[in-house]
Design a binder for these strands. Structure first.
Length: 721
DNA sequence: CAGATTCGAATTTTT
DNA sequence: TTCGAATCTG
């Protein structure tokens, strides 16, 4: 293996193959290169058989890339090597072993929408109001428990007070329903694999022997369950190599536990620790800015990225009037740079998907090609989910969750009352909806509905027969035709319906690709659905030119020559919800760090003096993260001086910048940053202005009582100075 | 039962 | 603002 282009640390990381290894890899430090070379080195120089190597990533895309890059480095094939995500690894293990836990090996995998319908069902059955108990919170609760490897019984036993006691009961219901449907959610995949290993030491030992060399990428994002799983697998050989950067941990809200990486050396006292601090991506100015920001986090291991690149252009500060103006500034700068960089080398990063709208509109108007990552997901679209549900039911008629979705889609006159009766019957007898239909004659369902239900059952059974002899693409066509799904859409003649048909067509490019790689067999549909359950839209981002638009979260692991970070305002980024929680604020700062370190050459930081949020105009102070960047690194207006500075691009003249001014009854005007005196609360400073007219509100940070939101017109306040 | 209308909630989310 | 879901009406 040729390692001559590697630096000292990288070489050491590649060659330390025996025993535990922690690689602390800063942003842009060539982490992926190290990982791929390490695997190749194991294969070629150490003669480790491919089948004894495991590499775990978080995304399918990352897994695919890793396999490709390893393949490019070595002569033999990589088919025997497991390079996969946590989830697909667990699916593979569970498909052959889950019978030990009482589930069918043909288990189906629930997506978040399915989860939601299960929870709503539970709420209904318990006569609870979904408004009082947001299904999202309940799903979140269940997910948390599973990530902590807490089973329903234990959760019930441990629940101390009200909502937890109820939620634990619902967790119990939920798990029971899933079990009866032989369905697993994403968290189950991990939790049940661990349970399997605990229960069946022989199975665990088989995989321990198989995976003698284990690699885990993005280790800072592992949750407790994933940590346990890795610990189990690595216990025997202890050749465990984890790679990560605690400064880039931005998924705590999903259960990621940063202490996994921080405590690695305690778990494996013999561990070798290697720091990769040489950055090969960003210019010095960008890196200095990122380092300056992240240094404000108190809970971190000190680490500073170095670069040999020169300063490069200064960071550009953009202050616009509105989100519209902000978008126009971005476009102006893109046009300026268009002769030096292609569109696909540029990206716009924002905190929330909602912020993409103004930018997208402006892009359309300016004819700038773009691609948007995330937002409304392809596989979340109704038509795709409907189709998938048909396929799932064809494979597994007892999948009630999917069956309920399609029982009256397209409309075939089977209403909620009928469905309720079927479900009730199923509940008392313990059989599925599909089976219940066969007895529908006897459970008080009107004759007309019975006929329709029988017709549906008949159709599905025919499709199930056929599915064994045709390709998935043919099956999809068959479903769309025979159910009348396509017909209904075609007769609608709306733009909406048109786009749904297009999406279904798009789906068929996926099935065609699958059909190309797979032979027709009675396992075909099973294989297809298993594959599909774990793919995400992130996988399909292909480079067809165009500026990338995405959330900062989605940008992790990517790099661009030119990066725009937009919406740098208090309340937007950092998000309003975390401002008073130091821990969460630090996570938010790590997100800023991730965003900044995506940039190679040019970095633009922008904000708007006011913007529409949920239909209301709001003004916010500049983000504290901006103030954390040394002014010497920044250009454009008065850099980050409070509440001032105009655009950096001289291209377009924006309306002269002015903070929004509001007036109260006495005719006094207020702007962000003004000091005020309140009759009761004392001295304070205005931090945000929301809304218009009489309902206009001021957020004021008072020295004594903290932040208060007051009506500008009526609050007893006076401007100071 | 199905379409129309009103109501209310609204980060981030690799699988 | 914009989405989905609950509620109302024919």
């Amino acid at each position: 293996m040729d390692l001559s282009l590697m630096n000292k640390e990288q070489k050491k990381a590649i060659q330390s193959t025996e025993g535990p290894l922690l690689i602390m890899a800063g942003a842009g430090s060539g982490k992926t290169r190290v990982l791929t070379h390490r695997v190749a080195y194991l294969l070629e120089d150490r003669g480790v058989p491919a089948r004894n190597i495991l590499a775990i990533t978080f995304t399918n895309k990352a897994a695919r890339e890793m396999r490709d890059r390893v393949s490019a480095l070595i002569t033999e094939g990589t088919q025997d090597m497991w390079i996969s995500t946590f989830h697909s690894m667990c699916v593979r293990i569970l498909r052959s072993n889950i019978n030990h836990l009482g589930y069918e090996n043909s288990f189906s995998i629930l997506d978040p929408t399915d989860q939601k319908s299960v929870v709503k069902d539970i709420l209904k059955r318990r006569n609870l109001d979904p408004k009082q108990h947001n299904p999202r919170n309940i799903i979140g609760f269940i997910s948390d428990k599973k990530n902590q490897l807490i089973r329903p019984e234990q959760s019930i036993a441990e629940a101390a007070a009200y909502p937890d006691t109820l939620y634990s009961e619902m967790y119990h219901d939920y798990q029971q329903i899933l079990y009866r449907n032989s369905a697993l959610d994403f968290d189950d995949l991990i939790m049940l694999t661990i349970e399997l290993f605990d229960k069946e030491p022989k199975v665990l030992e088989y995989y321990q022997n198989r995976f003698q060399y284990i690699h885990v990428d993005e280790y800072q994002d592992t949750n407790h369950a994933q940590y346990r799983l890795i610990t189990q697998l690595a216990e025997k050989y202890r050749n465990i190599c984890v790679v990560g950067d605690s400064d880039q941990s931005i998924y705590k809200f999903r259960g990621a536990d940063i202490s996994n990486i921080l405590n690695f050396e305690d778990d494996y006292p013999e561990a070798v620790v290697i720091k990769l601090e040489q950055n090969y991506r960003s210019s010095k100015n960008i890196l200095d800015a990122a380092n300056a920001v992240i240094e404000n986090n108190t809970e971190r291991k000190p680490k500073a990225l170095r670069t040999e690149r020169d300063g490069g252009p200064k960071l550009q500060n953009i202050v616009a009037d509105s989100e519209r103006g902000e978008a126009e500034e971005v476009v102006g700068n893109i046009l300026d740079l268009a002769d030096k960089y292609s569109h696909s080398e540029m990206a716009i990063l924002y905190r929330t998907n909602a912020q993409s709208r103004a930018i997208e509109d402006t892009f359309v108007k300016s004819n700038i090609p773009y691609k948007m990552v995330g937002g409304i997901k392809f596989y979340d679209r109704k038509e795709i989910k409907d189709l998938m549900s048909y396929l799932k039911v064809i494979l597994n008629p007892n999948d009630d969750i999917s069956f309920e979705r399609i029982i009256n889609t397209p409309k075939r006159g089977i209403g909620p009352k009928t469905v309720d009766k079927l479900k009730a019957h199923g509940q008392t007898t313990g059989i599925s909806i599909f089976e219940s239909i066969k007895e529908s004659d006897f459970i008080g369902i009107p004759k007309t509905a019975v006929v329709k239900l029988m017709g549906l059952v008949d159709l599905l059974e025919k499709l199930a027969q056929k599915s064994k002899f045709i390709t998935i693409t043919e099956l999809v066509d068959e479903v769309l035709e025979s159910t009348g799904y396509l017909e209904v859409l075609e007769s609608e003649k709306t733009i909406e319906a048109r786009s749904r048909i297009e999406n279904l067509e798009e789906f068929k490019t996926v099935t065609r690709e699958f059909d190309r790689d797979n032979e027709i067999s009675d396992e075909l549909l099973f294989t297809f659905l298993s594959d599909m359950a774990l793919v995400s839209d992130q996988d399909g981002i292909e480079d067809d030119g165009g500026v990338t638009m995405m959330t900062m979260h989605a940008s992790k692991g990517l790099e661009f020559k030119v990066v725009f970070v937009v919406g740098l305002e208090e309340g937007i980024f950092p998000s309003r919800r975390v401002i008073y929680d130091d821990k969460e604020l630090e996570e938010e700062r790590r997100l800023m760090y991730v965003a900044l370190t995506r940039a190679e050459d040019h970095l633009f930081l922008s904000r708007a003096n006011s913007r529409m949020i949920f239909g209301k105009t709001e003004s916010n102070m500049q983000s504290r993260f901006l103030s954390e960047i040394p002014e010497s690194l920044v250009e454009g207006g008065g850099a980050f001086a409070q509440g001032d500075a105009n655009t950096g691009s001289g291209l377009k003249k924006r309306t002269p910048k002015r903070s929004r001014i509001v007036t109260n009854n006495s005719g006094v005007s207020f702007a962000i940053g003004d000091k005020v005196e309140h009759k009761k609360f004392g001295e304070g400073i205005i931090s945000a202005i929301k809304g218009e007219g009489d309902s206009q509100e001021l957020d004021i940070i008072f020295n004594k009582v903290g932040i208060k939101r007051l009506l500008a017109n009526f609050a007893p306040i006076e401007k100071k100075e």
